[in-house]
């Protein structure tokens, strides 16, 4: 059992466990803290996949900003354990559970059946590619952050339209959020 394998199973257990905790805790504060744990685990998974820069961004954006926002809102509302945390209808709840089960079976089945197709070919070549990637990593260690540079070049040349479109979207979101937050009809309006 190599360290890489151990790391994968450890992180996978951490992610799935804390993900389940998000779903099962009836107190939203615990849910939010478990979600933050999941985010950190996902960032660690990114590091095992050699995406160092993305892992750092995941930590800063998700774990550092978005989740703190969630936790702050929950604490400001002072939401303790909920009276009605889960869906109430017995039949509709059963339907939803069945839907979730069907989807999970479909996805996992699809992945396992797909061994021979595109995914299968990829994972068959994976061993050779990992060896190749390792030799590339050795080269990269000399040239420091070539991977991050490659990422930046791709972002600002090939995907420049998406980048600019996101800029427009973020502006719209900022304006919309301020408008929503300042709307009348709240507890302050008399």
């Amino acid at each position: 059992m190599t360290p890489d394998v151990f790391l994968f199973w450890f992180l996978a257990l951490l992610i799935v466990g804390s993900g389940l905790a998000v779903l099962l805790f009836t107190n939203p504060v615990y849910s939010a803290l478990s979600l933050a744990m999941t985010m950190v685990g996902v960032a660690a998974i990114f590091i095992t996949l050699n995406a160092y820069f993305i892992a750092g961004v995941q930590l800063i954006v998700y774990a550092g900003a978005v989740m703190v926002l969630f936790v702050m809102v929950i604490m400001l509302f002072d939401i303790k354990s909920e009276v009605q945390a889960f869906t109430s209808g017995k039949i509709s709840g059963a339907m939803k559970l069945i839907a979730v089960g069907l989807l999970s079976g479909l996805i996992v089945g699809g992945i396992i059946m797909g061994q021979k197709s595109f995914v299968g070919e990829l994972s068959k070549d994976a061993a050779a590619q990992v060896a190749e990637a390792n030799s590339a990593k050795m080269k990269r260690a000399a040239g420091a952050d070539a991977a991050t540079k490659e990422l930046g070049v791709a972002l600002f040349t090939k995907h420049i339209f998406g980048f600019e479109a996101l800029g427009v979207l973020l502006t719209a979101i900022a304006v919309g959020t301020v408008a929503l937050a300042r709307s009348r009809g709240g507890t302050h309006a008399k």
Partner: peptide
């Protein structure tokens, strides 16, 4: 030694907000 040292440091130290919130709550 990490090749993205700064991003790592910023990311990790941004987790400090949780301890504060956990203590307060």
């Amino acid at each position: 030694d990490m090749n993205v040292g700064i991003v790592f440091i910023l990311g990790v130290s941004s987790l400090a907000a949780y301890t504060i919130l956990m203590a307060g709550w």
